[in-house]
Computed example of a mutant assay.
Amino acid sequence: MKKYMLTVLFIILMLGTSFKLDKKDQIKKIQLQSYSAIVIDQYSGRILYSKNSDIKLPMASTTKIMTTIIALEKGNLNDMVIVSKRAAAVGGSSAGLKEGEKLTLEELLYGLMLRSGNDAAIAIAEHIGGSVDRFIEMMNEKAIEIGAYNTSFKTPHGLDADGHYTTAEDLAKITAYAMKNEVFNKIVSTREISSGVSGKFNRSYSNINKFLYRVENADGVKTGYTGGAGRCLVASVKHEYGRFICVVLNSADRWRDAEELVKYAKHNYKFIKVYSKGEQVKSLRVFGGKSKYVIAETEEDIYVPLRDEEMQYIRTEVFVPSVVFSPIRRGDILGNLAVFYDGNIIAKYPVISDRDVDRKNLINTIRETFRSFSLD
């Protein structure tokens, strides 16, 4: 990291470049028609642009992102679900489900995310949670786990309801988490489908998310509209170093707004490599383990999104406990590597254990005790 900083500084001095940006590299202006918006880097979580992103707002069917997360983590794609009267009768956008119809959880998820089926949302909630109320509790518990502290779910589908809200920042966090799930990613990036791993579906589904067709490398995620929420969109765009996650809430032109957010991120940020995959960052003492130490290492290559004027001013710091307790498995998250700019954390990445450390048994403990006596 130090070598990298010195290299950057040397190049700047040699070229006689001032710290001022050239005209062509100046921060691109952005004009949005949404009340609230944000674009983040998925892997670091860095906010690249935001507008009213901390204001609590209704989010319509983008709610279904969380519904899908819970279903994938708690259910099985091959589960057979019987559509209830309540599910079949719900209003708003529909996947066309009929009372008493049997179909797989996998098909319900495609109906939920491609067709924005409110009927599918209720059927999923009843199947996974046992009741809609319990499923909503699970959604809120997951939001807290992800760190979406300004979010409150009251329904699994997103129809307007008192106390049902999120923020653009929270919704971006939830989506960044969801897009790490390969099945979730596959569902939301699908344009048309009539069968899956669970077999042939009862019907075919086409994706109503126009963003997939408008922007190169777009791979999701979800549209939404209600009278209270306005037109909403959560969008994802792949690039060489990861994904941009965009959230647009209450917009007069959600498609254009999301495109502008992606253009802004691409124009103003470069991805700079600061660590390689598996690079050792810290040694930690292990309590009660067969090994006394474990090494914290980077999980992946770390590329930080930076503006030109930020590059020579960043620093990194590792946040891990002074002691960790056995047992530990290789790949367990031990802490975070944080990137600072101007005294603030702008990005965080997990650091993981480089090895397994089993807990010492009683015999190991006795042997060590006798060994310490003999040294005395």
Rank of each mutant, 00 (worst) to 15 (best):
N250G: 02
I245L: 04
Y341T: 03
K238M: 09
A347H: 02
A265H: 09
H267S: 12
F340R: 07
V304D: 13
L261R: 01
K263Q: 05
K270L: 12
I314Q: 12
L334I: 08
R315Y: 10
P321D: 09
E317C: 10
K292I: 01
D332P: 00
A252F: 13
V274I: 15
A258D: 08
F325E: 12
G289F: 00
T298K: 02
F319A: 15
Y303H: 14
V281Q: 01
I333L: 04
R329I: 04
K238S: 12
A252M: 06
V247M: 03
C246D: 09
E279R: 08
A258G: 03
V262H: 00
E317P: 01
E309W: 05
T298A: 06
K238A: 14
P305M: 11
Q312C: 13
N268R: 06
S322F: 10
A347L: 08
K270R: 15
I346S: 01
I272W: 00
K273V: 05
F271G: 08
I245P: 00
R307W: 05
E240M: 09
D308N: 14
D308H: 11
V274W: 01
G343Y: 06
R285T: 14
A265I: 08
C246W: 03
E260N: 11
R315N: 15
V324I: 14
K290E: 11
P305V: 01
K266P: 01
E260T: 02
V286D: 01
Y341F: 14
F287A: 11
N344I: 06
R243K: 13
E299G: 05
V262P: 00
E300P: 02
G242I: 01
C246A: 14
S276Q: 09
S251Q: 03
I328Y: 02
A252Y: 13
Y241D: 12
H239R: 07
I245H: 01
H267M: 07
G288W: 01
I272M: 14
W255M: 13
R254N: 11
F287K: 12
